[in-house]
Amino acid sequence: MVSNNLVELRDLKVAFDGIQVLHGIDLTVRRGEAIGLVGESGCGKSVTWLAALGLLPGKATVAGSVRVDGQEILGTPRSVLESVRGKRIAMIFQDPSSSLNPVLKIGRQITEALVLHRALTGQAAKAEALRLMDMVGIPDTRRRFDLFPHEFSGGQCQRLMIAMALAGEPDLLVADEPTTALDATIQAQILDLLIELRAETGMATIFISHDLGAVSQVCERACVMYAGRIVEQGTIEALFDNPRHPYTRGLFDAIPRLDGPRERLIPIPGTVPHPRDLPEGCAFSPRCSHAAIDCRSRRPDLSPMDDGRLLSCFHPVSHSTDLATVAANRVAEAVS
């Protein structure tokens, strides 16, 4: 029986040198869906997927469960991992030029993935590599097959990385800040490409980004992470129209707008805590305008709400009307 759940993360925990950085992530990726992971640097968005795919360095201790089609892959031997990594689940990163091998021709790097994951060789592999390059929008593929990575622009390198990721015909593509290093107009092209490829191939997508705008365009669902935990999870509409966690709300308020009146920005006061000295109770409480006494002593669980979202907060933002007061409080605190 093929279940609808492609990948299931259960209570995934990561510690570096004894310092806990990921505090139990539960996430289910269904076939073909696109999930965004948002949050600021150090919140654990990338670590979650590096841990799941066994890509963290040896000093990391990973616990919990990662199931792909029901099969546990965490702690399994390399051979099992290799049958998943690159084949079932592919990953692309922020800086494409450092992910490509600078001394190998681009054609050879793409064919390598085809040999490994699909046992294609010779002319068949080359033909498929050319098809993939064409699919991700590289013009004049025959001539460019024998070029080196430095002969491509940043945007094209990211397209080539995506072509390599597609080589194994993965069920899930994990894209870790794939557009952050690119120029605005190229960013739009790559987002467009990711949306198109998903529509064509039906693969699921995990889109890791700090850019809420980009996430809303690529994904149906999103998880907001803070200090190694998911604090809110729901559909894009639910999160964007009516964020309930004060951190989610704060992220939206902090983004300057391109339309409407030019107003003072509303920052979130303070900074993200170091994993070594996380505050008692809710990790966001020292920066939260809604925090009460209980937030500083007890940690709220991630629990389902009436509207289907998951939320981890004792005193959520109720609805948009009390925004003005929250904003006013924040401004007062933030000027510090």
Binding site: A184, T185, Q187, A188, Q189, L191, D192, I195, D211, L212, G213, A214, S216, Q217, F240, D241, F252, L258, D259
Partner: peptide, 15 residues
């Protein structure tokens, strides 16, 4: 090219 939450990519000018 600036992604605006809630505004679909379609209909935007993609260079």
């Amino acid at each position: 090219s600036v992604p605006v939450p809630g505004k679909p990519l379609k209909g935007r000018v993609i260079l």
